[in-house]
Nucleic acid binder design. Structure first.
Lengths: 334, 334
DNA sequence: CTGAAAGCGCTTACAG
DNA sequence: CTGAAAGCGCTTACAG
């Protein structure tokens, strides 16, 4: 269909080998023929086939990225960093989401292998052990984002982030602090919450821990559950910023003011969160940077550098307007 | 490196052709050998090479997607729809952004052609004429999202959306209506703004039209410019929701209440916008659906169906809490 | 139902 | 500096 190296060779009166070398700036080729062939290629509208090249050289210059959820802005931040770094290294990105379905995750990564990507990145894997098992034919390196156990991973220390955030609330005088958790991905944060409370001699009240789906809707449904408690919280720490926004919306409907009547915290620090009303106190996960680091790590692995170590990055607290000292009225009434 | 069809053939004692057919469920193959070979393939950890297959069958089952800006949630909505539809058709997606750089757009699409994608989708192209030019060797179909002139495109009628939105403001009594525009991508919306004003006998005041970058920051800087006018607006229509959020933030800093003192409108209807405070009056662009439609159209083109016509989808107005009747004080003072 | 052969479009060690 | 040949891992028309 398209013009090939052979077509050019025929017209130029040289061998295909020569055309290939001319096009690839091979050192041992006369300047004359090189120029001529490159000119000819342009005229003939030659577009090299990377797929034929990939077959010959046994690398595709492609990285497969399997992402947890395209609907969650946090993962988008990861993708931004990944895409930028991949492009900077002149790779291409095959992108797929698996929407928290382990079977789909496996399918996607298997398909990446069929397509002979040079490596894969997966965010929030549910099946990381499978990648470790040698007889699964996953013969390409895979880097996992946000695993604490996988050897090739870059992760944010969320437990510590949440622990500090809860400490902030305690310092503000809060004692009844709720946590809206996401059962699949929120275990580290929940742990940080527990550790912080216990470190301050506050016992964990199971009634104050409610599950959510990780989106705005989850916050919307979680808040009423908490506010209808006989003994409601004075602060609500949320799985992420989206949940916090849902919680704040529900609170407003309950005529609860944030932060005057109740404090609310997020997690992620989405771009929007600084401009929400009230602006969100939250934990910044440096998603772009984590994405970039994952690509760097993967490329080291692809190039068989063996000095790769798991990376853990510390998140940073962002104190803003959605938290305040516990209000006297609420605190005494509780 | 990995096991190939030939390896299997050797062990099974059949020809590679037979292995290929067994693996592909070819009709004329005995059940016995088929089962045996499939079993063997599994045992040997065979992972077929789609890249070799692509070379042989001359299709890659891959679609290239070039997207304007990965940082803008509107485009993410498009990508969600695209990814879903691509996966449903068992294609794979190669994703790249070009961040509004026409040269980069061309590079990306050229690279897609090198990789022999079966088709490409580009959002908000800056170089659509190039795709039309027959001697550019773009021998694969390309569908453009949001072009009004390209023959294979699906677009939202933004001019009409904006026109209706402005009419809504006029119906609320507003006469001094500003528009925060984005010079590259906002021309249709600006046009809708103009047409609406003129249709109601309101002359367009150039001082009320200010440019922005399409993000929150743009709104943040545009609002003060408008409020410092001798004759400030009573309503501000924004390029998109992000801009509106920036504008509202800046307004709050100016001690202006939205919508009591001034109305603000967005465009896009991001998920967040219904949960912003105040919730945003805006125009919904059905990004997911547009993305899906673009994939459907592209696949028709790939399969050489010739009944493809440009699609234009009508957006829908979402009336919420960021707009209100013009306040008497402000209106009379102006 | 199965095999030998040619081909997809490149690259690259080996000769010259 | 250039060419002939083999190979990357598949598919598929042509015979049998």
């Amino acid at each position: 269909m398209a013009v090939s190296i052979k077509d050019i060779a025929k017209i130029a009166g040289v061998s295909p080998s020569t055309v290939s070398r001319a096009l690839n700036n091979h050192p041992r080729i006369s300047e004359g023929t090189k120029a001529h062939i490159q000119q000819l290629a342009k005229e003939m509208g030659y577009v090299p086939s990377s797929i034929a090249r990939s077959l010959a050289v046994q690398r595709s210059a492609t990285i497969g990225v399997a992402v947890t959820d395209l609907t969650d802005p946090y993962y988008i931040g990861l993708i931004q960093g990944i895409e930028k770094a991949i492009a900077a290294h002149t790779y291409q990105m095959l992108l797929n989401s698996f929407y928290r379905d382990p079977d789909r995750e496996l399918e996607v990564v298997y398909d990446f292998h069929q397509r002979r990507v040079d490596g894969v990145i997966v965010t929030g894997s549910y099946i990381e052990n499978i990648y470790l098992d040698p007889d699964n034919n996953f013969f390409k390196p895979v880097v996992i984002i946000n695993s604490l156990t996988y050897p090739h991973s870059v992760a944010v220390d969320r437990a510590t982030g949440m622990r500090k955030l809860i400490k902030h609330l305690i310092d503000l005088g809060h004692r009844r602090i709720a946590h809206v958790t996401q059962p699949r991905d929120g275990m580290e944060r929940l742990e940080g919450y527990r550790v912080a409370l216990e470190a301050h001699g506050i016992s964990v009240d199971p009634a104050l821990i409610v599950p959510c789906d990780g989106g705005i809707m989850g916050g919307l449904t979680a808040a009423p559950v908490l506010m209808n408690l006989a003994h409601p919280p004075t602060a609500i720490s949320c799985f992420n910023d989206l949940t916090a926004i849902g919680v704040i919306n529900a609170l407003h409907r309950h005529k609860c003011r944030v932060p005057q009547d109740i404090s609310v915290t997020g997690f992620d620090d989405l771009e929007m969160s600084a401009y929400y009303n009230p602006s969100l106190t939250t934990v910044r996960q440096p998603a772009n940077r984590v994405g970039e680091r994952a690509v760097e790590m993967l490329i080291r692995l692809i190039n068989h550098k063996n000095n790769v170590e798991p990376e853990i990055v510390q998140p940073r607290l962002m104190f803003r307007d959605s938290t305040a000292p516990v209000s006297l009225s609420t605190a005494t009434s509780s």
